[in-house]
């Protein structure tokens, strides 16, 4: 599904570029007003994102999607893009951030072990900047693709220096994550997109898709507890970081289909939060068409 994520990212490059420019040129209230015509135009012209949004909202609402809902959905996405510019510049004071479940992280770290945070594209993983602040002095590392061709991060001026990043796609990415976890650190990884890697079939919003197994294998091998982590936008200037228990980690030697229960657990929890915060679903590509992704 790699080509889909890349294509939809390419499609939104001008959107991101425009928003970043605006954020720097004028104040946030005016920017948010200007987002309306910009998002309107984006919805009209980007068929991939529009269809993906329509499909997701139909699945989550159980009824046909109205045009205005697609608009609201993309508007939420655009709002977080705008705010990321401020966050990247270290301007956090303008936001009201609620943090839930921090004691769960501390409990997970208690025995001197690490903790794996399972993220998703429900809300923005880049809001790990916020989570990072929430986690304060706790050692947190974020696994993410650092693709020089992916211009989004560059355009948005997101400074990876504020986060300790484990770049994905290198031979030792997972070895690095394993080492850090077993040294008692926190590692965060996205677990809802397959991107060509090994996966298992799951039901998500009553439709079949596939989700990757690698994050769950990492948890199993390092024997650390897992938590789910969401960075959610609640409208206005309100953000919400939630750490949630996602159930037991798979036993240390589990592989392949033995990981089905933990992948199912993850999918079920993601679904629960997707129902609660539907406009935070930022997978703007055909999420359910992952034929052939399963192994």
């Amino acid at each position: 599904m790699k080509h889909w994520t890349e294509r939809s990212e390419r499609g939104s490059v001008w959107l991101i570029r425009l928003i970043v420019w605006l954020a720097r040129a004028v104040g946030r209230p005016l920017c948010r007003a200007l987002l309306h015509p910009i998002v309107f135009y984006f919805v009209l012209t980007d068929g991939v994102a529009r269809r993906a949004s329509t499909e997701f909202l139909q699945a989550v609402n159980g009824r046909p999607t109205r045009w205005i809902e697609v608009f609201a959905h993309i508007y939420y996405f655009a709002s977080t893009l705008l705010d990321r510019v401020y966050m990247a510049a270290g301007d956090f004071d303008r936001f009201q951030v609620t943090i839930e479940g921090l004691p769960l992280v501390d409990r997970a770290l208690q025995p001197g072990g690490g903790c794996l945070l399972l993220g998703s594209h429900l809300g923005s993983f880049d809001l790990m900047i916020l989570a990072h602040r929430a986690l304060d002095s706790r050692p947190v590392n974020v696994m993410m693709r650092v693709d020089p061709r992916s211009r989004v991060r560059n355009i948005a001026g997101i400074d990876d220096g504020t986060l300790r990043v484990i770049p994905l796609g290198q031979p030792d990415s997972f070895l690095r994550a394993y080492d850090l976890l077993t040294q008692g650190e926190i590692v965060a990884v996205l677990a809802d997109r397959v991107d060509g890697a090994a996966s298992l079939p799951v039901n998500f919003l009553a439709r079949g898709t596939a989700m990757p197994i690698a994050p769950h294998v990492l948890a199993a091998r390092s024997g650390v507890p897992t938590l789910m982590c969401f960075g959610l936008y609640e409208g206005g200037n309100r953000y919400r970081i939630e750490f949630v228990e996602s159930g037991a980690t798979a036993s240390s030697a589990s592989r392949g289909a033995e990981l089905q229960p933990v992948v199912d657990q993850y999918a079920a929890m993601l679904e629960q939060y997707a129902r609660r915060y539907p406009l935070n679903w930022f997978n703007f590509y055909p999420y359910w068409r992952t034929d052939g992704g399963a192994t």
Binding site: L168, F174, L175, A177, Y178, A197, V217, L218
Partner: peptide
């Protein structure tokens, strides 16, 4: 192979 295989 991929990065997860390297860990294995």
């Amino acid at each position: 192979l991929d990065s997860l295989d390297v860990l294995e």
